[in-house]
Design a protein around this nucleic acid. Structure first.
Lengths: 217, 217
DNA sequence: ATATATTTTTAGCTTTGTCTAAAAATTAAA
DNA sequence: TTTAATTTTTAGACAAAGCTAAAAATATAT
């Protein structure tokens, strides 16, 4: 399994090409910042190796084997992200591209040891769940903050928009993973939300709220 | 700088192709377990990029630029080895091939943070010195154990033969990096050494002694 | 010093992953 | 439903890194 093959499986997984759902050649090309023709080539190879099932012009989806491989890469990626933040004091928005490299390191024992060293974390620094060793992914019932009822409290577990500008905004305003957020008020006018976070009360726009995932009990 | 280019620079460095010393095509091929013709190809490329100086049929040596790159890879390799042993409880003889992968991860900040996290170690688990960030390598005056005078004590800092069988032998007999070794007696007959290590006294063969580096005061 | 052996390089081919440009299939629209 | 637009695939090229086999250069030995 080459570096590149792993990248493709991960991309297909993230685009939802699992459980009989199909993903288009163009979508993969865009996600991976490459050309559709390159994608077709690789898809054919992955199909021969039975990591994906594929009929010409009909899109592609992961086989059980492919899904297993994809989840193992996601697991590695997220564990390394936890390592970078928890142990090396990286901030939330710096870890992605380094983890993108580290996820390809091949050693089962390394990942097992890392998992133990990090005390078996369940979520990565972005609040995304870490697949278990045998490929089970915790179902998290997260909601967008703007969908949360008045007076309810939730824990910030992730973002919808993970672009650097948005992550920097959150950082600047002291909003981080694991923070408890209570919805104090909703403005009918523009959908702004008055929220309580870390014992401060701030007003955030609808756009911000609709890109923040929280987990309520 | 590709993965493969880095491997070649490291190999040339380890073969001593620095400070006007020259290394042969065949030697590199053997070290890297590849063919001489492949080496010639890569040497030409590295020469164009001015990482090595090279005249046909005359062998190759690192430029200042190339040496700097090689030392940075050695630094990364050895820091990762310390991480694996100190933090993830790997044993001495398991870390090499994983570090071989990790050394290619590209992120200056990652290495700086790792160095800090490990508390700026000076030696790797094999007792080899870790180059500083600016490429300085500590001069260690290590000697082979069989060259040490009677009654002298030294600290075990490395091995000459780093093959798995030898490392396993040491492990089995409780000889590890950092151990204090005193030479109690030398047998004229076959060069065996009676040594004291960790409050035990054992007899080791000349071959073993001649593959163990120690550092005396 | 010449012949032999060894080392190194060249030439040409392979694989992996990418690309462009053109053809084929599918989807959308008039 | 026939045409137009879009998506996907094919065909052919390219760069990286490796290989084999043969040629050229250097080193060794008689």
């Amino acid at each position: 399994m080459t570096h590149s093959e792993e990248d493709y499986l991960k991309a297909i997984y993230h685009l939802g090409g699992t459980e009989n759902e199909t993903v288009s050649t163009n979508a993969i090309a865009e996600q991976m910042d490459t050309k559709p023709s390159s994608v077709t080539d690789m898809i054919r190879k992955l199909s021969e190796k039975e990591y994906v099932s594929y009929k010409k012009y009909q899109g592609v989806s992961l086989t059980d084997d492919g899904k297993e491989k994809a989840l193992s890469i996601v697991r590695k990626h997220r564990l390394w992200e936890v390592f970078l933040v928890d142990k090396l004091d990286f901030s939330w928005d710096e870890v992605h591209e380094i983890a993108e490299q580290l996820e390809h390191i091949k050693s089962e024992k390394l990942i097992d040891s890392l998992d133990k060293h990090l005390n078996y974390p369940k979520f990565d620094p972005h609040g995304d769940p870490i697949p278990s060793k045998n490929g089970e992914l915790m179902k998290t019932t997260k909601r967008l903050l703007n969908e949360v009822e008045l007076k309810q409290t939730g824990i910030c577990v992730g973002v919808k928009d993970s672009s650097a500008p948005f992550l920097k905004f959150l950082d600047k305003h002291g909003i981080a993973l694991g923070d408890k957020i209570t919805v104090l008020d909703k403005e009918d006018f523009d959908g702004s939300l008055q929220i309580n976070i870390n014992d401060r009360s701030i007003l955030i726009s609808h756009l911000i709220a609709s890109n923040l995932y929280v987990k309520c009990d």
